[in-house]
Amino acid sequence: MKKKIYLTESKRKTITFYLLISPWIIGFLAFVLGPMIISLFMSFTKWDLLTDPKWIGFDNYTKMFGDSLFYQSLKVTFVYSIFSVPLQLILSLAVAMLLNQINWGVKVFRTIYYIPVIVSGVAVMVLWSYIFNPEIGLINQVLKMVGIKGPGWIFDEDWAMTSLVVMSLWNIGGTVVIWLAGLAGVSKDLYESATLDGANKWQLFRFVTLPALSPTLFYNLIMGVIGALQTFNQAYIMTDGGPNNSTLFYNYYLWVNAFDNFEMGYASAMAWILFIIIIILTLIIFKSSSSWVYYESERK
């Protein structure tokens, strides 16, 4: 005899919830948590994928302290982040503010500025390696027309980093769109009352626009930093980390260790150090945010 089981409403809800999200839970266990545990374990071993992994304790982590290329990759990644993220933020905010000044044509400009984000990928990096070509590339040919002999760009170790930062500024369309959404949310009343109080343009920007945009800045800053710290494609496709390791990005060096040198343990340890760095930086930004991020609801 079949016995019908009666579940309370809340129990049924709970079961449905877990059934619905089960794909993500399985995926999380199989592709995130599981691999994280394996990765942590691997970081304490020496493993070339062919022979059995050998437990070596903290050796991979101590090895980093004596590895000059590790320091170089940290330096390259930090320098890139410190220049590209703020410059991207400032430039994209400036573009968004200018777009906010005009009455028509905003959509056309927004579309055009967003195109580089759409086409981002290998094709764009290949295009930029061509643009940066010292002899036949676009930049140096234009410079030559005005009588300047351009540098070697990505082929010159003193210019390679600058080149990649310049390239990153071409890609600000996504951030511009986010700024525009933020600007649309700034209350008009605030502008009016500040203007009545005699605020000039700079004061309006500094004391009305900027605080109102601070949640947007917060979001853009965190996403920008996390993204910049994980730069890989530029180094792999355009520079091979060179010349003379001047663009040896952290993730590129990690990749070389994993898939060229087959140092799976060392590469895993490097991945964890990067994770820790990202956590610390994010925490710093989060902690500091209480003093510079203003939410509309708090003012009420």
Binding site: G34, L49, S268, A271, L274
Partner: peptide, 14 residues
Amino acid sequence: MLPSTVTMIPQFVI
């Protein structure tokens, strides 16, 4: 927030 490289190598192994 998890960098993809943390899971990249174990995923490759799996």
